Amino acid sequence: MNKVYETIIKNYGYDEPVFTRDLKKRIEMSDEALRQNLKRLSDGGSLIKVKNGIYYVPRENSVLRNPRINLDKVITRRYMRTSNNKVIGYTTGINFANKLGLTTQTASVSTIVTNEVGRPEHEVKFGKKIVKLKKPRVRIDARNYKLLQVLDLLNEFDRVSEVPLENAVGAIKIYLNDNDCTSSELNIFIKKYPRKTLENLIEMGGVL
């Protein structure tokens, strides 16, 4: 069996996004040799290329003539949660407000705040799906991502919510039920945000 294919199956399995930059860390091979192996596997149908640097292994018994990977899964793995479950980003904006029940609207272009971005803000395209990426004010990890999501929400609350702030407190508290960031961490984070965020936090009664 091809060494690259064997490594992919062992570490990722079928229908899971495979990023070449991650694959390089799992296999001892020159960049050129890896590129040639991936091209050979892709040309032979063992791998399917989503876009440059992103592949997946289709299931052998797929009934689809041209099987497609779930693009939401690709986006999640690339910008929010890695294959080893490391949190590197989160959704924000109207779609997050919708998740909390604060609006009935949804945005066709999702906004993701992620560590995996260099510029403050730009858009990327996966097939027909467009995603807006934003640089975080604080580096994201598993402990702080929910709190940062809520601070982002408070920063743009008037734009994304259809309910008044006092009616959103309950949903926000439930969402942060398992948050274990300390008050001192919150004080550090809040300094990275505009004054409006602090004002909304105070109006909520500082329930975070």
Rank of each mutant, 00 (worst) to 15 (best):
N2W: 02
K3M: 08
I8T: 08
Y12G: 11
G13M: 11
Y14I: 11
D15A: 05
E16F: 02
V18S: 04
V18Q: 04
D22Y: 01
L23D: 05
L23P: 10
L23C: 07
R26F: 04
R26L: 15
M29Y: 02
E32Q: 08
Q36W: 02
N37L: 02
L38G: 09
G44A: 14
L47E: 03
I48M: 12
I48K: 15
K49S: 11
N52A: 09
G53E: 07
Y56H: 09
Y56I: 10
V57C: 05
E60S: 11
E60F: 00
V63H: 00
L64M: 12
P67M: 05
I69G: 03
I69K: 07
N70D: 15
L71H: 01
I75Y: 01
T76F: 00
R77H: 07
R77W: 00
R78T: 13
R78V: 08
R78G: 03
R81L: 15
T82C: 04
T82N: 06
N84T: 14
N85H: 10
G89D: 06
Y90V: 14
T92G: 06
G93H: 01
A97W: 00
L100M: 09
G101V: 09
T103D: 10
Q105R: 15
Q105T: 12
Q105L: 14
S108I: 13
I112P: 10
V113R: 01
V113Y: 01
N115M: 07
N115V: 10
E121G: 04
H122N: 15
H122I: 04
E123Q: 14
E123D: 13
V124G: 03
V124H: 04
V124N: 07
K125G: 03
G127T: 11
G127Q: 10
I130Q: 08
I130P: 10
L133K: 07
L133I: 12
R137G: 03
V138R: 04
R143E: 14
Y145H: 15
Y145N: 09
K146L: 01
L147Q: 08
Q149E: 15
D152S: 07
F157V: 10
D158N: 13
R159L: 11
S161R: 11
V163I: 15
P164M: 01
P164W: 00
A168R: 06
A168L: 05
V169T: 14
V169F: 00
I174F: 00
Y175D: 05
L176F: 06
C181F: 00
S183H: 09
E185F: 00
L186Q: 08
I188T: 13
F189C: 11
I190C: 03
K191L: 11
Y193R: 12
P194L: 01
P194T: 10
K196P: 05
K196R: 15
E199Y: 02
I202C: 00
E203Q: 14
M204F: 00
V207E: 05
V207R: 13
L208D: 06
L208P: 09
